[in-house]
Amino acid sequence: MSDFIEIDNLSVTFAAKGRQVQAVKNVSLSVGAKESFGLVGESGSGKSTILRAICGLAPISGGEIRIAGEKLTEKRAKNFVTRVQMVFQDPYASLHPRHTIDRTLSEPLAIHGIGNSDARVVRALEDVGLPSSFRFRYPHQLSGGQRQRVAIARALMLEPEILLLDEPTSALDASVQAEVLNLLNRLRDEHGLTFLMVSHDLAVIDHMCDRILVMQHGGAVEELARADLASANMKTDYARSLFAASANRMLETPPKETA
């Protein structure tokens, strides 16, 4: 029982206007408890779809997903939502534009009939480093980084064990990205969270994750440990080309070729 999230031969097929689009093809991976696992690959390679499939937001056409040994059924079990939560890529689209931050954060408590919501909302804001004066603001009164903090706070309201992170910082500036990544790492330590994180920035993945799965065209290409990445120790051409395109993200920036 070492593996907390197990994905076996997962396939996801969308039926779009009569056409079948197989977005994920026979992908298997496993993530240990309190581990941080990364998914990288070009856009459209099916990274987000894997996360959405875990949440029941994408149609699974083959294979199975187990969380702590329990197989996920078509209708998610009651305790699923208190176990797995997700942070979406675009902080401008993931908060309800007509709800205050307070409403957004207290909604999960209301759904599950958890009391003491005032104190919990204040504590959640504190937890993600937002002043409590933000509590009754609307999303459009917040910057992108602040919105993403709210989204993270919302995901943690139900105290899940697993956080699915879909490019949580790709819409953010460098300085804000640093703040959000630091926040995520701190929360992971404090709450003992397991991360399954998607990004197309190898440097972000390298900073956050212990193991990495490289994906292309919906399939898994290669699994790498963190050490393999830094030492450019890949076996497949695709992983190598991805790495080459990220050369400027290395610790020592190689001299520029063209002036």
């Binding site: 949440c55 009651k78 997700m86 689209a93 993931s94 534009p97 999960p108 759904i111 919302r154």
Partner: peptide, 11 residues
């Protein structure tokens, strides 16, 4: 995404 998010919270 914001509807997906509340659905994910069991609404």
């Amino acid at each position: 995404d914001y509807i997906a998010a509340v659905r994910l919270q069991g609404a």
